[in-house]
Nucleic acid binder design. Structure first.
Length: 370
DNA sequence: GACTCGTGGTG
DNA sequence: TCACCAAGAGT
């Protein structure tokens, strides 16, 4: 093969092209500080937690709401759990919200309100893993760190045409990702802050999972996958398992006067820490303790089925039959669990509580039928 | 490592 | 309609 066809990776040129592109094309995002304002680690941390496995458009309104309501980490640490969970409702992956609050309290009360400035310190914080710790180091502090998220994984696997299939291939990709950050330790802080964000912008807008816009890519000439005409083939991922369907029941227990029963769901399970409607098991625990706090079969006399709701989670689909139960004295049910509450059914009130989307679907159906 | 954990957009 | 998936972390 002629030498001119051998693709050679030049880190400094690659990095120069990435940063040059970013100066012209970076997205205006609320957590990106413009001008000479000092970067606020609190806001960088907040945005990174919210962005985990979540799209930028989904995050923006939540980020604005959170930073307005709790402008500093001390404000957030002093907030009520229920208030924070309600504000997070709809964003998903609710363990992030529980850890967000835990982390804020550690920083506010044990670390004097300051986020750690070293990787190991950051990694000890609840909800902060390898990606987020590196992102805070680079973006908030301008300190050298190899930041590897899904975007940078994808870019890396294409630049080097890494053929090892996931999940094993992920390790190889991460090892190679360091090559994109070669000699970053001698950069200016502003470039260190910009670089990972530049890579992620390119990943989100150009080096996309499907139909990548290689014609617009500032580092096309370094890309082995592009040279092969196979950019979209990377990263190589294993086939996914079929998604099972689970079934269950959800109960709209009403006193006929505009009130219903809801329950605070326990941590460490689906929608943990959130308020929801009482439900049966979702098939998975047949023969085991019921997932809800009520012994529904004993208590509920004549439920009326009004329809079904459908919801898709990451690893299963859920079909819940929605039952309406008339119960004039809801207070009688409260003795069964301290997690039960009586609330008004107006959507304004339900929104204040912050129901996950699954239960909003049930509530909307009930409103139409009651 | 393999699972678990939400939601809404997209082709 | 459906499969895929988005700035991952915890267990």
């Amino acid at each position: 093969m002629p030498k001119s066809h051998v693709l050679r990776f030049n880190p400094s040129k690659f990095q120069e092209n990435i940063l040059g592109w970013y100066h012209q094309n970076q997205r205006a995002l609320p957590w990106r500080v413009v001008g000479r304002d000092k970067t606020d680690p609190y806001k960088v941390w907040m945005s990174e937690i919210m962005l985990q496995q979540t799209t930028v458009p989904a995050v923006i309104p939540y980020f604005l709401k959170f930073t307005e309501q709790w402008p500093t980490v001390v404000d957030l640490a002093d907030a009520d759990d229920a208030e924070v969970m309600a504000a997070w409702a709809g964003l998903g992956y609710y363990a992030r919200a529980r850890n967000l609050l835990k982390c804020a309290r550690v920083v506010a009360r044990e670390l004097n309100g300051k986020f750690p400035k070293d990787l190991d310190g950051l990694l000890e914080l609840p909800g902060v893993g390898p990606y987020t710790a590196a992102a805070i180091m680079a973006i908030a502090y301008g300190q050298p760190a190899t930041v590897v998220d899904g975007n940078i994984e994808r870019i890396t696997s294409r630049i080097f045409a890494i053929e090892d299939a996931y999940p094993e291939g992920k390790k190889i990709v991460h090892q190679n990702a360091h090559r994109l950050f070669e000699k970053i330790e001698v950069w200016e802080q502003q470039d260190i802050k910009a670089y990972p964000q530049a890579l992620m912008d390119i990943g989100a807008g150009i080096c996309t999972p499907k139909n990548p816009s290689c014609g617009l890519c500032p580092v096309q000439r370094f890309c082995k996958a592009f040279a092969e005409g196979q950019a979209e083939a990377y990263p190589v991922k294993a086939a996914k398992k079929a998604v099972p369907i689970r079934h269950g029941d959800v109960y709209w227990i009403t006193d006929g006067k505009g009130n219903i029963i809801v329950e605070k769901r326990p941590d460490n399970r689906m929608l943990g820490g959130m308020v929801g409607l009482p439900t049966s098991d979702w098939d998975i625990n047949k023969g085991k303790r019921s997932e809800n706090s009520l012994n529904l079969q004993e208590i509920l006399q004549s439920p009326l089925k009004i329809g079904k709701i459908y919801h898709v989670f990451t690893h299963f689909r859920l079909e819940l039959a929605v039952w309406v139960v008339a119960m004039p004295d809801l207070k009688k049910l409260l003795k069964y669990s301290p997690d039960l509450m009586i609330v008004n059914t107006h959507m304004v009130e339900l929104n204040k509580i912050g129901l996950p989307t699954l239960f909003l679907k049930a509530a909307r159906l009930a409103h139409k039928n009651v």
